[in-house]
Design a protein around this nucleic acid. Structure first.
Lengths: 194, 194
DNA sequence: CTCATGTTAGTACCAAGTGCTAATAGCGGG
DNA sequence: CCCGCTATTAGCACTTGGTACTAACATGAG
């Protein structure tokens, strides 16, 4: 016997979780037991067969395909935009965005919303953040909706620079202020931020 | 003949696209032709069989499932920590962290790593970011490893405040500098950041 | 020694196909 | 009316990755 049953089953569970696309035969090789043993293990652990596992993953994604698309590019949903001038986005704070201990939203989510918005408000898609100053004025909690307003306050197209100020608030109360110095990338200068 | 072949094939294509989980037999019933005809149609249209279609959907979702995770807990892996003094974390930039257009890492990932580290280096888990100043010095690309070093530069335990400086670099070159003013939350003061 | 547990082997069967051959239906042209 | 063509249908062997079940065997504990 290599390792007791329990350990193998634990490992089995983990490795299927990590890669649901593995067949019983492949598993039997990696654990150096027979295919039947793998099947018995799966039964005891109530792990469905390969096809059912794959189907499960597929159905899940198919169902929230609509959900996952908009979240991809910009953090938060842009509800109004006037290129090179101003933009507004909203972001609903959910349980996964907060510290478990105190239910307060992690700073990087506020930053991500503001920064994404600053990038979006710049006319070109090729904008990078160079510098920024942030103030986290009040804690935000799960269930609250953050409204971020971005405004281009100073634009120097000749120098490929612009300054964007973002103010985020929850129910009229300002919770976050950020100023961003943005760099407008051109085709030639790509990657040469100094 | 019900409807010419062409129309059936068009409809077939549409209905598989809409619901990839349909079997040939089910299709043969809805189009009132034999299973073999459906198979021939699929071949002409180069549509894979049910299992392959499902697998395709599953693989797709599985791939961007990994995408949605990283902004979750601590960003980057902490490899050294001395509470209240300093800490180091590494973060491998992957394709999902960069802008598609120019392959440059999005600012909020660098911020997230630095901010997480700043929170972690504080002795208590109940630390919040109050203010911060960031400089994005050089663009970081997919495949590169960011090493972030955090240092507590000024601590005022009596005022529940501390300043943390984080310097991130890729292959000895500094790419990002951030200073964070942190607020140390106590049980009583919870949520009363002013 | 016997019994329980764990493991392996083997068989029949299933779903949802592929690949192939062959038969048939329907229609148009000459 | 028969020829040829396309489209359709049928049938069979085979594949993957299993389930369900039975039987054999090994090993260690009581």
């Amino acid at each position: 016997m290599k390792r007791p049953k329990k350990q193998r089953q634990q490992a089995l569970q983990d490795s299927i979780k990590e890669n649901p696309f593995v067949t019983d035969e492949e598993l039997s090789i990696t654990f150096d037991v027979s295919v039947q043993t793998i099947r018995l293990d799966r039964m005891e652990l109530a792990i469905p067969e390969l096809r059912e596992r794959i189907k499960h993953v597929a159905v899940k994604t198919f169902e929230d395909e609509v959900k996952s698309l908009p979240i991809d590019e910009v953090i938060g949903e842009i509800i109004d935009i006037e290129l090179d001038k101003k933009a507004i986005s909203i972001f609903d704070v959910k349980p996964e965005h907060v510290f478990q201990r105190n239910q307060i939203a992690r700073g990087h989510h506020l930053f991500a919303q503001a920064n994404s918005l600053a990038v979006a408000v710049m006319n070109e898609e090729l904008a990078l953040t160079v510098k920024s100053e942030l103030q986290f004025l009040r804690p935000v909690r799960a269930g609250q909706r953050i409204v971020a307003k971005a405004e281009v306050i100073d634009s120097h197209p000749e120098k490929n620079r612009a300054f964007v100020k973002v103010v985020s608030s929850v129910e009229q109360q300002t919770v976050f202020i950020g100023t961003f110095e943005m760099y407008r990338m051109t085709e030639q200068s790509e990657g040469d931020v100094k």
